[in-house]
Nucleic acid binder design. Structure first.
Lengths: 208, 208, 208, 208
DNA sequence: TATGAATGAGAATTCATTCAT
DNA sequence: CATGAATGAATTCTCATTCAT
């Protein structure tokens, strides 16, 4: 009598993730306010009521989207730094190129633009995002640059400033692409830009 | 003895600008959807009805805000380039520093973040913005870099790529500041960053 | 010093009539609610404020339109009946044809449809209209038919019923023309119909 | 002990018809513009939101009202004509009397006045109504009269003109009753009028 | 669990009316 | 008298949220 549940029934455990995925897609594209829960539900293949089964309300869904999407991104990079040996500029390139790669393919890559747009409407979420992503990745790059300075590979610059100078362009290009994809007549390849940016940076950071 | 305040003053000529200013403030802060026309009106010192006297609807008001705010920004810079004599890196600094200056004080400086947030919801406006601002300033900087290459001051790089590398960080820092002002525990000074960015750039652009 | 006002300045006495005329046109076309005072004013060549100088509000303007437009129409007909000599069917034709004529040209001819549409929203006005126009013209025709019966020209019928049978079709055709002008693929000439209707009637009223 | 009444009942299938019925009542009485959706909802026993669940907006509701209400009316009459045997004047009476009957009892009978009032504001709907109702019933009667002429029962008249002369009075009387019910001091019985009208007509149509 | 019909608060929009000029 | 800028109440419409099934 007590037959084990068939495997595919466990799919219901996947529901929250599917809803979050759908919400991410729509929030990223249209923003929080312009996204209707009805559309999220439709995209997730459920009905509105089901969304409320898993998330208290639209705000909580939004927070869940950000929280779920954001965290895992950096862990990989942090271990990379930890374990690195060799030239720091090589690591810098590894980080930048893998980051550019993620940006082009990861479904989560729309979150930057979303947070930029909604931060002032969701202060606590903004704080979470800043702590978990912005500052954390800034620290990551500052760390690399700092080590490069220690090793004499880079000249003495303010590592936090430098970290901003390293991260900002890539994020900005990605955000622009997302916002103006339809009308930018001079599209740019993210990976090509990453390479260009890296070259400029490394020469800029070296001793004259 | 004291006559009651008149219910309103007749200020036809000033009204549209006042409303646009109010709308810019609120749109910049909260985004399009989260801004209520009632609040725009209140901030402009009028009633909702008055807003509709001058703007057909919320979207048209939004467009007017962008159009009015955006255009004049670049003219100053373009004449600066035209009339410049001397080292191109000096001009680059002039442009970056004056731009950073504007970003810190001009009321219009919130427009970038606003457009990033709303571009996909207002495609025609996005195109206008891209044409009038994004591409135009990219060209401006590309031009400067190109001349620097011609004159032998800079090494041979792709000027459009370089232009992106020049403009993106400044915009990004500004946008971040706006979005995360309340929660960034490591705030950065825009002008200081501009200086840092410039130093990095110029060294990066020079011949090795 | 005290020069007499130039003649054309007396035009200002014409203002109310001009406004009423404009209002009649628009009310007739779109109905009471769908007519904006702004448009009435524009059509009358004045501004909204001026309308309120002469009429307390939209309802009063509406009433004025009906009152001014409606009354004079029947006086002419009533004297015609009074003074008639000869066959009553000739008079009937005279009345019908001159009425059809008016309907095609008088600016007031849209009032029937207007009253049909708005009667339930303006009960007192409806009463006025019924008394002054509907019942009065019904009586007029009933009178003619009655006299025709007295003289032996028509057979004995209920004169009030007959009066309805005489007036209703003409009004209906006119109203239909007005309502469905744009889409009736089989338009009818009002005067031709009047003739047809008259022939039918007269034969119908005669002794068998 | 006694459970509180549920806030609402689930009645999906019945709702649209109920809303249309309520809307028909109010539109017929007050016209399109003067009818508030709130009142329609209240009369249908739902809330405003529910109306929008089934109809895109007020105009679409209006169109639905007309479309749903109008069509079935004529089918019965058309089969009657098809299958008729005997004197055409008998059929004419059958049609007129059953029509008068409908007019007095059918809930849809207010639609004529409504369309007369709103036709110019809803041109496409007017066309639909003209095609489906006005022209169609005109043709119906023209057909009968034509057959009467063929059979020698009626004299040679223009059948379309005659059809107008047959239909217009009945519609007009109905419309007048609706508009001026409250103030007409000489109310008329629709069926009695139909009889009177029929007698006049038949004598008018016969050979002299 | 899942659904989706129904709700109701809230925002955009319209326009008759007022009133400073 | 005339204007037309400004008002604000009324109405349409939207959509997050609830809840009977």
């Amino acid at each position: 009598m007590n037959t084990p549940l068939p495997r595919w029934q466990r799919r219901k455990d996947a529901r929250p993730a599917e809803i979050i995925q759908a919400a991410l897609t729509l929030f990223s594209d249209k923003g929080f306010a312009a996204t209707r829960l009805d559309d999220v539900a439709k995209l997730a293949g459920v009905t509105k009521g089901t969304v409320y089964l898993y998330f208290e309300n639209k705000e909580e869904l939004f927070k869940a989207v950000v929280r779920e999407t954001v965290v895992p991104a950096l862990e990989f990079a942090e271990t990379l730094v930890e374990e690195h040996q060799g030239a720091w500029s090589d690591l810098l390139w590894q980080l930048l190129s893998s980051w550019a790669e993620r940006m082009e393919h990861a479904t989560s890559s729309g979150i930057s633009r979303l947070m930029i747009a909604e931060a002032t409407n969701f202060p606590e979420l903004a704080r979470f995002y800043v702590d978990e992503v912005v500052v954390r990745s800034r620290r990551l790059f500052a760390d690399v640059i700092n080590r490069g300075i220690q090793s004499g590979e880079f000249r003495e610059v303010d590592p936090m400033m430098a970290a901003r100078a390293v991260t900002a362009p890539l994020v900005m290009i990605k955000v622009w692409k997302q916002s103006f994809a339809l009308c930018d007549t001079e599209p740019v390849d993210l990976k090509a830009f990453a390479r260009f940016h890296f070259d400029l940076l490394v020469q800029g950071l070296r001793h004259r």
